[in-house]
Amino acid sequence: MTAPFLVARNIAKRFGALTALADVDLEIRPGEVLALLGDNGAGKSTFIKVLAGAHPPSDGELLIEGKAVAFASPKDAAASGIATIFQELALSENLSIAENVFLGRELKRSIFGIPFLKRAEMRQRVDSLLQELDAHISDPEAPVGSLSGGQRQAVAICRALNLNARLVIMDEPTAALAVAETRKVLALTRRLAGRGCAVVLISHNISEVFEVADRIVVFRRGRKVAERLAAETNHEEVVSLITGAHPDVRALEKTN
């Protein structure tokens, strides 16, 4: 088994009196698609925001390749190789595809000490990324506001790839998509893992999860209640883990 890229230990997150996450331990490995499942409000989004540097954890630690890290901002997390595609896609609808892909990490040349954008180079790079992903977007100059949901996901994935991410986190990437677009995004997810990326995927669609995930982790009420290899579990078990009907979850929730 490969060494984990990221290890989360005892992660907790409180918002005032509300405990959104408690005691989460998790290992994320390169080349593996890990699916996070759980009911609404289970803490999935909060957990990945901690990984992404968008929320500082209230407790616990993160290790990347064995070394403890503390992220003050999404920029820090990106510098450590973590790219996150948030549920509320952090794309700027008023900017073009190419601009979005490079936003915050633009290619620039200095003229009299002033940084100017290398627009042609950014456009070319995005063009080839879009082709590599087979994203069916022809014009990197188009404003993101004019794209469909699936195309926006592809842009967000491009952005992650362009950051040379080692870990790509996707929060419900297929939630708003039609069937054909969902297929494409799932294929992209597998392609990312094929390139040696670690992938964390949040989804509500269990069949979809079984289609792409190597490992399945279930969250309930801010806690991790189960971890299974996809090959060693099935649809019914996962459902019972999510709803809390599974004996393991009952036992766990009794002790807490």
């Binding site: 992404a52 968008a54 901002s73 999404p74 920029k75 990106a78 996150t84 948030f86 509320e88 952090a90 794309l91 700027s92 609808e93 008023n94 900017l95 601009e99 936003l103 915050g104 990490r105 633009e106 620039k108 002033i114 940084p115 100017f116 954008l117 627009r119």
Partner: peptide, 28 residues
């Protein structure tokens, strides 16, 4: 015009105007 349309500053400014939260998540 150059600052707005040809430098990272201009992109960042327009991204912030579109959504401050998204701009923050993008690492601006």
């Amino acid at each position: 015009w150059l600052a707005l349309r040809r430098t990272p500053y201009g992109l960042h400014l327009l991204a912030i105007g579109n959504s401050e939260e998204k701009a923050r998540l993008s690492g601006i």
